[in-house]
Design a protein around this nucleic acid. Structure first.
Lengths: 149, 149
DNA sequence: GACCAATGTTGGCAGCGCCAACGGTAACCT
DNA sequence: AGGTTACCGTTGGCGCTGCCAACATTGGTC
């Protein structure tokens, strides 16, 4: 589609713009990650583990905004690939403690490069100052609804 | 989820922010529209027809960024509800000319109110100037990829 | 001990964007 | 005229996402 031909009623709509932007963003990120056969939650989960340390699956889901059921699948896949270790927490046998492995850390660095290059593609038409401002505004919006709604 | 607890690696990612924002935006819009049993493409299609006049389904799809197959379903539903009239173009019998009906125009006004109130909810934490700037930045990004990619 | 809450897992659902294929129609071109 | 190419609408399907319901297990609470 040539988005510039879209109705002004849509083009002026923040929800429509953000949805279109999200679509192209997802395409760019997936495009980059697919070069190594990775998916988006791959990166999210590894990044969360690397940054905030081991966690239960439920906790992990809260961090990155994934449903428990989806975390189960994600962690399962990562564990099969040896990028993550899953063992039941002896202190609370309901929990599975998940921690990132060395291989997972290496993997994360690869994905990091790919994801960031996708960001450059996405924000290509914006100046550095504009990119910063966009991130700021989106953060305000997301935080507001993450906390309130 | 409390998005403020998300890993900084994700929180700083434009693609992640835009995806989260899109998700809440879609939720807000759907929430509003669901009060009248409408969907998002309902509004898109009616708005496009109202603004740019009758069009074939393919043309309609190009305008609002919908696949031909999805336009078929959307127009079908709108036609059953009497909000749109679909008749084969005598000048080119491949085409279905779709035009908005009076009932469709009324309907559009209702949806317009609902959609705009959802925008207010979405942008609640932003000042008018910030809202304008966000729309501008998103428009630049969307236009760039709509034209290039 | 009885009750409630949290966890992980499985299975399913709906929306969205996308693609493939088909039959019907139109335009082009030699 | 015929053949090729391209467009159109329709149907059916696929994959990804986010979500919810159920269940069994385990922990905490009264």
């Amino acid at each position: 589609m040539d988005s510039r031909s879209a109705p002004r009623a849509l083009r002026g709509l923040p929800s429509w713009l953000v949805s279109q932007a999200s679509l192209t963003a997802a395409g760019l990120v997936s495009g980059q990650l697919s070069r190594t056969g990775a998916h988006r939650w791959h990166y999210s989960v590894l990044a969360a583990l690397h940054e905030s340390g081991p966690a239960s699956q439920a906790e992990l889901g809260r961090r990155v905004g994934l449903d428990r059921s989806d975390v189960t699948a994600a962690v399962g896949a990562l564990a099969s690939a040896g990028q993550v270790v899953r063992e039941t927490d002896p202190a609370d046998r309901r929990r599975n403690t998940v921690r990132i492995s060395d291989r997972g850390t290496e993997r994360l660095q690869d994905l990091d490069r790919l994801v960031h290059s996708a960001q450059d593609q996405l924000l290509a038409p914006l100046s550095p100052a504009e990119r910063e401002e966009l991130v700021r505004l989106l953060t305000v919006v997301v935080d507001h609804h993450g906390a309130v709604g």
